[in-house]
Amino acid sequence: MQKYVDYIKQIEIDSLWSGVKHIVWDLDPKVNILSGVNGVGKSTIINKVVKGLHGSGEITSLMLKGVRLKVSPNDGEKIRFDVIRSFDRPLMNSDTISKVDMSLVTELDWQLFQLQRKYLDYQVNIGNRMIQVLQSGQPDAAERAQQLSRPKKLFQDMLDSLFADTGKTIIRSENEIRFSQIGETLVPYQLSSGEKQMLCILLTVLVEDNLPYVLFMDEPEVSLHFEWQKQLIDLILKLNPNIQLIMTTHSPAVIINGWGGHVTEVTDITSEDSV
């Protein structure tokens, strides 16, 4: 069985931008924020790593893309990861829409549709584990079972707090995510772009079930209200303390709650490749 990585210690990329740049980025186990002017290559660095992982998360696949990682533990072979992008663009593949749901019109809608399936699986897994704990007969079984349900409740509480200004509350009796607003039931695709973006981020974090996990985020603040930008990192780490964030941003609000020391300028990790 392949051994999973807890977090990435360093990203090294050879011959970026037509072979003229070399990247070495030492990473914090928790929060890493890449900054720089437009066009300097923030998204390119993130995309190079994500594409190299090929969806499988196997570290060896990165070598073909000129990417090398140092990880913890050192003998880790595979990374649990996901990527969040900021732009709520129209879905271009009409076949995908017609085969799935005509209400899915943007990339965020499609991401939320896929996350809904993962959310259902997550709830089944948690439920099965709670049953096993309760059937164990151990004195603390009830408390342990309750602990298993706490991340889901925390996720729901976060959404209720974030959406309070518009009167939306998550319907807790539903297995799929639905919201109530002034007596009307809303599905995720009826939310605003900012609400979809925040739901997508927090749901991605929740369904990883507190496992060590690397979340790449490319300018996640674009659709988010200023106050939500300020809370973003803290909310993610509260929902899953075992996550490692690797993100790009242009927004001072994202780092305002004490994350300024976790910002790295692209120019500081870039050197000229020798010819």
Rank of each mutant, 00 (worst) to 15 (best):
I8C: 03
D14T: 10
D14H: 09
S15D: 14
L16H: 13
S18T: 06
V20H: 14
L27K: 02
P29H: 07
K30Q: 09
V31E: 15
N38Q: 05
G41L: 03
K42H: 15
K48F: 00
G52Y: 01
G55T: 10
G55D: 09
G55F: 06
G55H: 07
E58V: 11
K65S: 12
V71R: 01
V71H: 04
P73G: 12
D75G: 02
K78M: 15
D82W: 03
R89I: 15
M92Y: 11
S94I: 09
D95K: 09
Q111S: 01
L115M: 06
Y119V: 02
D121H: 06
G127Y: 01
P139Y: 04
D140N: 15
D140M: 14
A141R: 07
S161L: 06
L162M: 13
S180F: 07
Q181N: 15
E184D: 12
L203Q: 13
T204I: 12
L206G: 03
N210K: 08
N210M: 04
L211G: 04
P212I: 07
M217F: 09
M217K: 09
Q229I: 04
K230I: 12
D234H: 10
D234A: 14
L235G: 05
I236E: 02
N240I: 07
L245C: 11
M247V: 11
S251R: 10
I255F: 02
H262M: 08
S271R: 13
S271E: 13
S271M: 04
V275P: 15
